[in-house]
Amino acid sequence: MKPARFRYLRAASVNDALQALAENPDAQILAGGQSLIAMMNLRLVKPACLIDINRISNIGYIDEDGDGVAIGALARHNDVKHSPLIRERCPLLTEAYESIAHHTVRNRGTLGGNLCHADPSSETPAVMVATGATLMLQSLRGQREVGAEDFFLGTYETARRQDEMLTEIRLPGRRTDGWAFAEISNRHGDFAIAVIATTLRIEDGRCEAARVVASGVGEHAARLEPAEEALIGGPIDDARLDAAAAAAAGAVDPHSDSHADAAYRRDAIAALTRRTVRRAAARCD
């Protein structure tokens, strides 16, 4: 369990990192390293070059951004988890962190690295999609914004190009009133077997908007639109909960592995949809 040989570059600034990325098409960015280093030790990945961004100053920020929040590339999970600003403006993310990894992993791991890694059973992509977050990608060629829904493309696959670095995550202000996150994993802190992140807006007892986002049951976090449609247009009553749960289970095509089979994942999605919607609706009151 030792990595294959690689070159190590330490970036002193974002520009430094971008320069190195442009010059080394076979390079990977090293942020918290909580997934990358383990995969290298297993020789599942053998990057020829690592660009370490950990010494770049001032990119671990969590700042106000209009009525939303801007999170720097190197913000550690535990800083995000414990941020009062996030708790106020994106409580769904705070709630999700109750299920994410373990303390020591969160001390090193970064939100940005986690999103770029795009593990199909990771929690944070679901939150990004549910809240409509925007990801800022920068390269020597310039900067572009990608919405979370367009960022996650497949297993370990994102819209980030090889020469780009994710420099900032922008969470919008709360556009909906209700939110809830729930996950099933075999053990607390494990990668998820199934995740649902839900946001709702209810006006005059009528569900006006809903996002039901699943993770762990496909190649990447994705909205379950049939479940959302089942919720919108009326009160969140038992009939709507049942319909949404059934629609959610029908909308996923999960895989089987040693952690759970597909049938279980489908049951889990139904249960989590029901539970998150109920909790999100209660928070709307």
């Binding site: 075999n186 077997i193 759970a260 089979d261 049938a263 279980y264 049951d267 889990a268």
Partner: peptide
Amino acid sequence: LPPSKLRALIR
């Protein structure tokens, strides 16, 4: 009896 196996028995 991890959750998936127990759930299968219940199902």
